[in-house]
Design a protein around this nucleic acid. Sequence first.
DNA 1: GTGAAAGCGCTAACAC
DNA 2: GTGTTAGCGCTTTCAC
Lengths: 343, 343
Amino acid sequence: MADREDKSTRTTVRTITDLARLAGVSPGTVSRALAGKSLVNTKTREKIEALARQHGFRPNQMASGLRRQKTGVIGVVIPLGHDTRQQISDSFFMTLLGYLADELTLQGYDLMLRRVVPDEDADWLDRFIGSGMIDGVIVIGQSDQFDRIEEVAEGYRAMVVWGNHQEGQRHCVVGTDNRLGGRLAAERLIAGGARRLAFVGDTGPMEFAARFAGAQDAAARLGTPPVLALPTHLSPDRASEEIARHLAAHGTAIDGIFAATDTLAALCLTELRALGLSVPGDVRLAGFDDLPIARQTMPALTTVRQDIAAGARGLVDLLLRRLAGETTESLVLPPELVVRETA
Amino acid sequence: MADREDKSTRTTVRTITDLARLAGVSPGTVSRALAGKSLVNTKTREKIEALARQHGFRPNQMASGLRRQKTGVIGVVIPLGHDTRQQISDSFFMTLLGYLADELTLQGYDLMLRRVVPDEDADWLDRFIGSGMIDGVIVIGQSDQFDRIEEVAEGYRAMVVWGNHQEGQRHCVVGTDNRLGGRLAAERLIAGGARRLAFVGDTGPMEFAARFAGAQDAAARLGTPPVLALPTHLSPDRASEEIARHLAAHGTAIDGIFAATDTLAALCLTELRALGLSVPGDVRLAGFDDLPIARQTMPALTTVRQDIAAGARGLVDLLLRRLAGETTESLVLPPELVVRETA
DNA sequence: GTGAAAGCGCTAACAC
DNA sequence: GTGTTAGCGCTTTCAC
C-alpha cells in the first residue's frame, strides 16, 4: 500500500538521464552503476540502485542493444514444410521449443520465435539474421532447406540447427542419430517376427529419410524384404485418412509398421484397430520420439526415444560457444529403443 | 550461381547510409523508399530497391525501433506456477502458442517468448513490459498471478491475457467459459448414470477452479453428492502417481471422473485400467481441452472442447486494437461438449 | 571515480 | 522529391 502511494506521487523516470538528474550524477555514471561496472563509488552505486528500484526503472534494451551491437536475444525459427502451411507443427518441435525456452532463460537470453514458410519466402533465414534483432539463431528442423542452411552457414557463424547430421556438412547441427534409431526400431520389429515391414511417414525431410534408411539397413542385414514406404502428411487429419487408405491397400501384406513419429504411430494404432487387426498380434508397431503419448496409447507404444532436454541443452550450449568465437563440432545424440507393448 | 558470384564481389552494405552512397542519394531518401513512403520518385525508388535486393540489405530493426518508439514485437509470457518450475508447461499452452505465432506473423509482428517463475521474480511482468523490446504483451494463463496482472493492467493498456473471466476484473482477458464447460462435463457424466463424481486436478489456478465450480453446479442442480476434489500436479510423472493414490483410496466410491485437462484424463484412463476398472462401464470419464490426444486414447475421450485457434485470433485481435487505442471488452468463448466413448 | 561527448542505425521534421 | 539535421536511449572512450 505504501508502495502504491509512492508510485502515484513519484516523477516518471523513463531514461537513464532522468535517473541521473535525480541522483545528481551524469548519465554515464548511472549506466556504469546499473551495469555493475568496475569503477563506481559504492555510495553512488547504492544511491542509484535504490532510486532505480524505487522508480521501477529499467534501461531500454533496444537502445542498449543498438549501442553495444548485441541484443541478448536468440532467434528460434521453425521452417514449415511445403505441406504443413499454417498447421501447428508437430508436437515434438513444440516440446523442444519449451526446453529451449527454459535453457535460454537460464543463460540470460530472450527468445524470439518465428515460424516461416520457406516456399513463400525464399529469404526466410537471411531476413531473420539480418534483422539486427538477434545475436544468433537456432533453426528447428532442416525441413527441405538443407542447401539454404548450408549456404548461410558459410557466411554466418552464430547458427545452430536441430536436425540430421550429414557427412561433410558445414552447418553445426544437433540431433539424434536417426539412422541408427530407424535400425533399432526395425530390428525390434523383425526380432518379434515381422517380415514384411512398412514405413509410415514422409520420407522427404532428412530426419525421416534417415529413419527410413536405417530401417532398410536392418531389413537388408536380417534378410527380410525391402521396407515399403507409405507416405503421409504430418497433420493428423490428413495422415489418418492416408494411413487408412494405405492399410486398406496393403493391410494384410504387412506385419510390421515403423512410423516416423509417435503421433503417426498412434494414428496407425487407431486405424489398425478399426480394421480389426490386433497389435502386436497381427501387426507389430514401433514409433519414434517417445513423446508422452507413447505411454498412453493402448497398448503402449514401443518407440525410439530422443532425449529432447539434452538436445535443447546441446543447441544452446553450442550456440553460446560459437557466439564466444569457438569453433564447434556437431552433436549427435544416441537414440534409445524403449520397448513397451506394441512390438 | 550467378547470384553467388555477385555476392563475393560486392561491397558490404550494412547500413542505410552505405546504400545511400551507392545509390547516390541521401540516407533519408533510402529510408523513405524502403518504407514505401509517399513522396519518392519512382525511378529513385526502383533503383534503391534493386540495390537493396542485390546486396541483401535489411534495415536494422533495433535502430528503427528505437527511433520510432515501436518494435514490431509482441511479448508472450507464460507464468509457471509454483509447482511447475522448469517443467515443460502443459501442451494446451504450447498449442495455443503455436497458433499465436501463426496469427502474429500474419499480422506482421514478431513474437518474443518468455517463461517466468513469478515466485522467484515478483517483478516478472513489469520487467518484460519495461524492457523496451515489445510493443505489447500477451500473458498465457493467469496462474496464481491474478492480482499482479490486475495491478499492471491499471497502468498499462497493451496487454491481453488468456485465462478465466472474473466479474468486474480490469484486465482484458480471452478464454473459454470454464464454469459452463465444467457444468457440461459433469452433466454428461451424471446423465450417463454417475452419481459420485470426482474432479481430478489442481483447483488452485482460476481456470481449473472454475471448471470445478461448474461441476459442483451440475451436481447441486441434479441432486448428486458434492464433487470430490482430488488434487494433482500438472506434470505427468507426479500426476500419474497421485492419481493412482487417489484411486486406491477412493476408487470404488467413485463412478464419474471429470479431469481438469485431457492430459490428466488420459492418465486417469491408464490408472483405471491398471486397477481393472472399465471405462465407461465402471467409471465414466470426461476431460477438458480436446487436444489431439483425446481422439487417440482407447476408448476415446469425451471432453470439453476449447477453440484454441479462435482464442489465439481473439488475443491478437484484441491486443492490436488496444495498441491502436481502442478500448476492448474481454472475450469469453463458448465451450463445446464433445461426446466420444468415455462418457 | 565521474563528466562530457560522440555515436550505434534509423526516421521524421523541416528546408529547399 | 530530396537533402539536412536532430535526435530515439544507451554505452564508452577520453579527459580530468
